[in-house]
Amino acid sequence: MSNLTKAQEAQFRELVIAKHGEVFTTSRQVAELFGKRHDNVLAAIENLECSDEFAELNFKVCFENSGLQNGKPLKYYSLTKDGMVFLVMGFTGKQAAQFKELYILAFNWMAEKIRTTHELTHWQHDFARREAVSVAKGTEHGQGLARRRIEKHALSQEQAAIHAKLQLCLNLIGEEAA
């Protein structure tokens, strides 16, 4: 999904949320994107004919305080990718088809960002191990010290590249979690 435009990436950040390595959306976001009233989306979720186990895993009831109704808690659902797909498969029309495709792209985009961050973390750990070996060998003898000087330059360039890529991914993930 590296061919996404910046506008698509920005749009996807609004569609899906990432926290603790999990990707999800809310019933409010579904209602907004499909141009439906939120109470109708809540009713659609509550009337789904899925197993209790599936519902428990993919639809978490949540509440938020409303400043508009004297602090009365307002119900909404947090939906996993599977829950969202199950729900919107019942929606029809051209707009529904377009949004189904967009949501699939959004979830896949976020999963790719998370996967890339994990890969960079593993790359960083591998780098730290190789750096430690290089330092240890450099202290053993003269040839090791000469090799260490050469490796140090290459490793410092690699470390800068790792840091830049990791920082970019962390910034993207941080924006989604906010």
Rank of each mutant, 00 (worst) to 15 (best):
T80L: 00
A106N: 02
N40C: 03
V41F: 08
K100F: 06
M110F: 04
G83T: 00
F63D: 02
L68T: 07
E46W: 10
N65Y: 15
F86C: 12
M84A: 15
N70M: 10
N40E: 06
V85I: 13
I114P: 03
N58V: 11
L74H: 08
M89K: 06
N108D: 14
K113A: 07
I114T: 04
C50P: 04
Y76W: 11
G83N: 01
A106F: 02
L74K: 12
I104V: 15
Y103V: 00
I114Q: 05
E56Y: 04
T116H: 09
Y76K: 05
L79A: 12
K60V: 10
Q95W: 09
L57Q: 15
R115H: 13
K113N: 00
D39T: 13
E53R: 05
K94V: 07
L68C: 02
I104K: 03
A43E: 05
L42H: 12
A106S: 01
T121H: 05
E101M: 15
E49R: 15
K113Q: 14
L48C: 08
L87T: 03
P73F: 05
K60E: 15
E112W: 01
D52N: 06
T121W: 01
F99I: 06
A111R: 13
L79V: 02
L57G: 03
M84W: 15
L42Q: 12
G71S: 09
D52P: 02
N58G: 11
K81R: 12
F99R: 07
K60G: 13
L120C: 02
Y76L: 09
A96T: 06
F86G: 01
N108M: 03
N47Q: 13
Y103T: 04
D52E: 13
A43Q: 14
N58H: 14
F59R: 06
A55Q: 08
N58E: 09
E112N: 03
D52K: 02
N58Q: 10
S66G: 10
L74G: 06
K94L: 11
E56L: 14
I45T: 10
G71Y: 05
C62K: 14
L105G: 01
M84E: 09
M84V: 13
E46H: 10
E46F: 05
G90L: 06
H118K: 14
S51I: 11
T116Q: 14
A55G: 03
V85P: 00
K113C: 05
T121Y: 07
Q98F: 14
I114Y: 02
S78P: 00
G93T: 04
F86Q: 12
G83A: 09
N40S: 11
A97N: 10
K81Y: 04
M89Y: 13
G71N: 11
L87K: 03
